[in-house]
Design a protein around this nucleic acid. Sequence first.
DNA 1: TTTTTTACTTGATTCACGTCAAGTCACGTA
DNA 2: TACGTGACTTGACGTGAATCAAGTAAAAAA
Lengths: 228, 228
Amino acid sequence: MHNHLETAHQCIELVPIFKTLSVEDLKQVTSLVHEQQFTQGETVFAAGTHADALMIVAHGQVKVYQGAANGREQLLYLLQPGDFDGEAALFKEVTRTSSAVALVDTNVCMISRQAFQALLQRAPQLALNMVNAFGERINRLERQTTAVTTTSVEGRLADYLVETAASFPSGAQFTLPMPKKDIAVYLGTTPETISRKLKLFEDAGLLQRFAGNRVQLTDVDQLALISD
Amino acid sequence: MHNHLETAHQCIELVPIFKTLSVEDLKQVTSLVHEQQFTQGETVFAAGTHADALMIVAHGQVKVYQGAANGREQLLYLLQPGDFDGEAALFKEVTRTSSAVALVDTNVCMISRQAFQALLQRAPQLALNMVNAFGERINRLERQTTAVTTTSVEGRLADYLVETAASFPSGAQFTLPMPKKDIAVYLGTTPETISRKLKLFEDAGLLQRFAGNRVQLTDVDQLALISD
DNA sequence: TTTTTTACTTGATTCACGTCAAGTCACGTA
DNA sequence: TACGTGACTTGACGTGAATCAAGTAAAAAA
């Protein structure tokens, strides 16, 4: 549906760190990216491997997670088109500490360290853009850490639902973007608990559930209040 | 005990992002820092305020935490001499999302955005150093998030003890660097639980407790194993 | 010193959530 | 159509850890 150049270009345009580049530099970037496709469930990169490229999601959805010794895992990011990960690899040798898999069929763009360094020569302000991007990510992580430790599963799920619903027309039915198992991991809980809490919300008249993982929030305000 | 210049200089030397600077540039940095002192318990900066400077801890210890709606809080960083926070302020207007208080009498060095921007002109590679520093911080936060959600309080406390003990002579008695209340917040639990777990460790012969919040780990290996 | 405050300990109780287990439902396949 | 297979639901149960409450120790102030 998209040829290489078109996809790559869209991909680049979406990324905040390239926002301030001149048209010429953008062209340069576009020519340097390497496009890759992944089918649902396929591993994009694995923890412990050598990282030498920045990954940008063009189409689809990628989850980035970290495993723990006891087999549990924590979902760190849920990358949407335009989101990226692996910036650290652009500056020095690093080993990946997290893994990433495609949740749906996904296109990503890779920019190798080498290519990026060349780019940096042309456009030094890129470094500043990177710093900003990092700053935002740090903020996000700080908030996530705080949320996970100070709020209940119920609150986090309510939050998640409200946030997810926000990307659909207000009051509309929508399909949960990932299987319950992944939602569970994302919120640091189990599929069973997700199921129970959803039922609880339904019984309380806050939402309705339909076949095929579809839900409709009927009382967004109330849901938003739960996150205490 | 230290005059201004001496302290400021030590302070700068400790900071990783200034490591690659030339002697001349370092001198310049030193002249630009503004030293401040805080007594135990004093607020270094508060959430919601305007941030316009990088803060570097010279002597003492500073805790950086984030409050939640329900009154709980999450400790994000425990800054030791050489650690810093607020880098985001060096590039653009930001509002602080976290607060910081001195846990003991503390000296910090402040570098204003203005001063830093001037510095950046002289030494562009600073931006790259910043990116690296950010990368490490992100890694730290990712690990912290994962640890909090996937391991038990017992494991986290054991980890914390082993890590803290590492900065003292092996096998020596040492004083816990902060009140139990703060340790509790740091590990995402309560002072009561900390108390109980410490007793549990003591009963198991893994450590000994003494007056004045002093402890001595007697079986570090075993403690390190608990962190499952 | 005594008094007051603050930090810490310990116990009893409660509860949210994870775990285990047994379905049920939907969907693809032979 | 029957048969799997994997995703979801629901119940019963156990447990780690928060909460509530009442103390004790230690540090600061008077």
